[in-house]
Design a protein around this nucleic acid. Structure first.
Lengths: 142, 142
DNA sequence: CCTGCACCTTCCCATCATGGGAAGGTCAAC
DNA sequence: GTTGACCTTCCCATGATGGGAAGGTGCAGG
């Protein structure tokens, strides 16, 4: 199976498959006489694992850990769970940050009529610094 | 005022102030005889605007637009509001993506006892692809 | 005046995951 | 045999940020 077919089957682009090989996330693929990479079912299985982990937002380094645990028959599921829970915390933390930004900006936008006049609370908020989502840090005045 | 003091006053690192100058987000700073950059109140005002926009998650290119609108006395607040609402949508979209990932992963993690045995639903989910957040759920907007 | 230290300057490199594109080789269908 | 789709490697770019080197400046204390 060529890299293009493996890409289509796994949902990972050929570029990324080569990249994952270069950084050791997947072992070097077998080569045909022509030099073309050749992928078998085991390779696709691994690529599928990687794609699903990536779809869950895991970084390459965390995926590397997960792959090690995957191939370690004697591992404890507690190890896996720790990684998963850590990742969940990070995802939710980032999501919350984004929502705080959105909320702060929405407050400004709600105050803006958008009626075509030059007067704009959004710009004024950016200009004057009505303390955006920054957890109550007092404004550094000098 | 040196760049270091401007950095402290604005909350933007000296590195980033130079970068913003290099990409034209702030005009070239005045120079002292020594070649040191020199910052005045107007510069700090602009840097403060940029920092607050950045804290709200605006990209540099959007900040560039906002700065143009800021200095355009005859602008319509509707233009500003469009940018803000667009950005709010993007922030909330990204937040939702992250939360969908976290939710899918939490489902797997909840199924995992973490009791030290090798059996692990998280790994199994990644291996078998129990359809993570990819498809199925229509974008429920509330 | 000299020394030392903190600061400034420019320039290059690294991140992280991904894509674009060039130059050249291979394969398969017609 | 030609053609077009595919493969190979290699280099470059992204966005926003930091690290660090090599060299110049500013200021305070001797």
């Amino acid at each position: 199976m060529n890299i293009g077919q493996a890409a289509q089957a796994s949902g990972i682009s050929a570029k990324m498959i080569r990249y994952y090989e270069s950084i050791g996330l997947v072992p070097p693929a077998g080569r045909r006489g022509s030099g073309y990479r050749d992928y078998g079912p085991a390779d696709l299985h691994r690529l599928g694992f990687i794609r699903r982990a990536r779809d869950l937002g895991f970084s390459v380094e965390r995926i590397r850990l997960l792959l090690e645990l995957w191939s370690d028959q004697g591992r404890s599921n507690a190890e896996v769970k720790v990684i998963a829970l850590t990742h969940i915390n990070e995802l939710e933390g980032r999501a919350q940050q984004l929502q705080e930004m959105a909320g702060a900006l929405r407050t400004l936008a709600n105050a803006c009529d958008g009626d075509g006049r030059p007067d704009c609370p959004i710009i004024q908020g950016l200009e004057a610094g009505e303390a955006p989502a920054c957890h109550g840090a007092p404004p550094a005045r000098q």
